[in-house]
Design a protein around this nucleic acid. Structure first.
Lengths: 230, 230, 230, 230
DNA sequence: CATGAATGAGGTTTCATTCAT
DNA sequence: GATGAATGAAACCTCATTCAT
């Protein structure tokens, strides 16, 4: 009782620890072997716990995977939301969204791999996953609607589709890393990819005025960039 | 379509028919249930053949799925290659690539879904699928290298990444359809999506000159569009 | 196809054979180990078939047990029904019902044990079993209603309860055998038990007239009994 | 009833309370789900105690169930014994036995259900349960032996079998209630059932003289019945 | 070619029991 | 005494694959 309310604020409670250990192990095995190869036995061994304990914390395999997804996704979504709801030009927000994705990749590439390769494209049945994904796209679509109203987005652009395309670009950019098309250890390439994804996208959808504002922003950013990242 | 009715299109013996029936059934089940739910028994039932017959034509489940993938992909790739190797401005080629993808979707949405959703998934390495995918991206990347040499593509754009982003945009555009974000029966929306994907992408990466050439092309295309499509 | 319609009349069809083998094995294991100890693996070994084949013929363990019950019970019920629907005094019918139960015991004591000990008294959830049991009791209750109308059954006797008591007596009589209270190999005792169950019951519920008719029947029966049984 | 509210009825320390709470919960779960569905976790939840506490009071599941059985059964048996060992005609005793069974049902139908439904069931040999049951039958059989010696019971009746049949009738009468064949809330029906079970049985096995004595008893009983019961 | 019964390894899931706190 | 997390053996069930007809 007291364990849940008092200690579970951020990292406490022995129960929470174990649970998280298993979750983390699941992400690992998942990223390594994919949905197929991911046997509960592997997860348990990886987490260093007994077989049955997985079932103490998760109803069954599916719920475990679902939780892996939601855990990973919810953090991502909340960061995206923060960016979307902040003040500022849409160009800055789009760059912010790209940054969130790439930062997540930098922190835990395996988790991102699971999100991208194993779940985001996953089979129909799992309603939650699709909803989480489509909800995020819709959230950004509304951002684009407002950007269109303020004259930043070109009028002939469909906001929903634009949102889908932005995430498509980000996702495939990261997929290129995950699949080894691009060397993931090449940090300079990583940086260029991030720039290009946001840059090309914005070039493609912004109005002349917004693009010009973007341009001036980019130049000032270049000077302070290297300091920020490391 | 023509495959089913005529018997001699491509080695159309009776054997070939059966084989193709099974393959088509596999695509269906695959599209409906994903790699997971796809049991040999389902494929056999869907095809209306006996359980064991699947094993007469395919060594095992993996070979069947591999064949499903290659069959679907090879046609797609060869059409892409034709577009890439033709003469003409890169803008036209990018539109051509988008057209190929959308046309494939129009002909058989389920097959496209399989290609989209199951890429890079399932049994460990399955090199073929990834290779087929990455090879195609590399092919288009070379196209962009040439376009950069001829001054069509902006110099600061990375060709490989550009290629990835193009396919990312196309894929997510189609995924939006597959996921029901966009109504797939709305043909006007389909048309607009196709235009926007290619258009935004090109806006984002082309030089001023190439973009201008694009612009003039687009205007002439608008007049003849409806005739082409049906 | 032809296997089912042409050969399945009584004992034919290879499929039916296997199925029956498994069913019979299930009855054996069931009678020997009870519901608890009855593992699918045991049934398969007893039947001399592979593990998975049990699941080829039966959806799961429960369906197997359900089938064991229905198979055993349906034969029993149809014989009871034949007795109930025949012409004649109610006394004869009651004796007929007792005979059916004891004959079933003589033919396959294990099957009767399963019916009595494992299933007839079984846990709530299984609707079919209870229904089958209560339906049979109701069938005989109607027989008693008619017997009451014709003046054979005493008017103050409740027919439904009488039916329950008849089966209670029969069941406990057989249970006494099953539990070893009475030596099951003592055929004379068996014969006496049968007589007493029907006799005491009838004494208890028949009117004076019907009881007198019974008495005269019993005497004539005694002379021809020993010849019949062996 | 009184067990729960007062703390010193029968070794009523705090420990005893807990133990009894668990036992009572076990009866409940047992009656509701049968031996199968009865998991220790269910018992603990029903009793409102922690998982492990069940193991503090009972060595293992089997001992718990055994205790449930014995607790319920021992009270029943001692009451039966009191009836059997009392002075008086056998007819009165048979009615007394029936009364004990029905009274037990009135006080706690669920406990009776467990006793009825689970007798002779589950884990292989569990000698105790069978013994408790067969011992009781043998005890009454001896009562019938004496009744036969005193000319109350007809000479051709087998005492052991008669005893089995009596309990068979009682059990199935109660089973009819448990299974819902008879409405358990219909107290008049309950009363009639009790009368009929004992009455029919006695009619079936008593000699003329004993039956006549019975008859006169019954008439006098009818007058004072309602007062006795409540 | 065609069939579908038969096989059994491999995975998931349950749950009685233990034990550290 | 009391708790419930932790353990793991043992059962169930699935399904790719084989094979006799």
């Amino acid at each position: 009782m007291s364990q849940q309310s008092s200690k579970a604020v951020e990292g406490g409670s022995r129960e929470g620890e174990r649970r998280r250990t298993i979750l983390r192990a699941a992400i690992d095995v998942f990223a390594r072997k994919g949905y197929h190869g991911c046997r509960i036995a592997d997860v348990a061994r990886e987490a260093g716990v007994a077989y049955g304990l997985v079932y103490h914390y998760f109803k069954n395999k599916d719920e475990l995977l679902e939780t892996v997804f939601e855990t990973g996704w919810s953090g991502f979504v909340s960061r995206i939301r923060a960016v979307v709801e902040a003040e500022g030009p849409v160009g800055l927000k789009v760059r912010g969204i790209t940054d969130v994705a790439f930062e997540a990749y930098r922190v835990d590439p395996r988790a991102v791999k699971v999100l991208i390769v194993e779940i985001a494209r996953s089979p129909g049945g799992h309603v939650n996953r699709q909803n989480a994904f489509t909800d995020t796209i819709r959230m950004c679509a509304e951002m684009f609607v407002r950007a269109q109203a303020s004259g930043e987005l070109r009028p002939e652009v469909d906001p929903l589709l634009a949102s889908a395309l932005l995430f498509g670009s980000i996702e495939m950019g990261l997929t290129a890393l995950v699949l080894g098309l691009v060397d993931p250890s090449d940090t300079e390439m990583l940086e260029r990819a991030r720039q290009q994804i946001a840059g090309s996208f914005l070039h493609g959808v912004l109005t002349q005025d917004a693009a010009a504002a973007e341009e001036s922003w980019k130049k000032s950013a270049m000077r302070s960039k290297s300091a920020k990242l490391l």
